[in-house]
Nucleic acid binder design. Sequence first.
DNA 1: TCCAACGCCTTCCATGCGTG
DNA 2: CACGCATGGAAGGCGTTGGA
Length: 287
Amino acid sequence: MNVHNRFNSVYWQQHLANVQLDLSIAAYTKVPEDWHDTNYIPEFNKLYYIVEGEGFVQVGEERHVSQPGQLILLPAGTLQSYGTIPDAPTFGKYWCHFSAKVGNQHLFDLLRTPLFVNVDEDDELRKQFDRLIRFQYAEGLSAAFRVRSALLEIISMFLDQSPRIQVNTSKSPSFEKMSRVIRHIEDHLSSTFSIEELARIVHLQPNYFIQTFKQVTGQSPIQYINRLRLEKAAQLLNFTNLGITEIAETVGIELSYFSRMFKEYTGYSPSAYREYMLNSQTGPMQK
DNA sequence: TCCAACGCCTTCCATGCGTG
DNA sequence: CACGCATGGAAGGCGTTGGA
């Protein structure tokens, strides 16, 4: 079971997408010649998008002299230094400070990313930073949504450009244990699970197991399992010709209950859902 | 860690509707 | 009529929670 598989699991994708974002500040700055700091540990994450000039950043032991076109991530809680380079023009950069938490963990404790990436879509990234800057102090209900969406977009671009991303679960024993349980669930979706059986996998008391599971995933085990089953069922309805009865069986739910639950989940009965998806895929193409 | 109480989950069964 | 599916009621079991 390697790290790559773990990252591909439905669990991690879902789980990391639940990230809580909080922007503290975003701006564009042409930094002064005396811009520097040495060996300090910030509470927040920083993203720098270098547009002009030169400078260095250091996280832990890794030191990097940065060029325009690079997006740099300085994760919260890491030992950092930065500064200008003598006789070189200083950085002109977009930057922002933000917190990103999944449950009670820092996102970039869970995700090991490179220190920087080379950006493909310069225009797009500038646009997102501009949005961030414009909406951070804006009035109105939508501003906070826009800030969040711009920040997500920037982080996504960073992740997409990263050649290697590792999920690091070792910092949290609960995460490690629960992801083992979730892998088991994903691998055996069509069978039935008892809480006792799942708790045994990680050697926990059932009631303590439920608590831990909920802390990590935000859902009780049963709710989590059912959501997974219904998502799988929706996929099967969408992409296969299997009968409803067969699909119910495949995802381990009794037929009549499946109908009921599926409707609660999607608003459509299974067959209505299939029809709806069929029409929405081909509908606009037909005359 | 254990226990008890509550409420939700699940199963079973009956019924109805549309289709071949 | 048989079959596949949807819907709903009833009941019991089990998951979940909170307190000690």
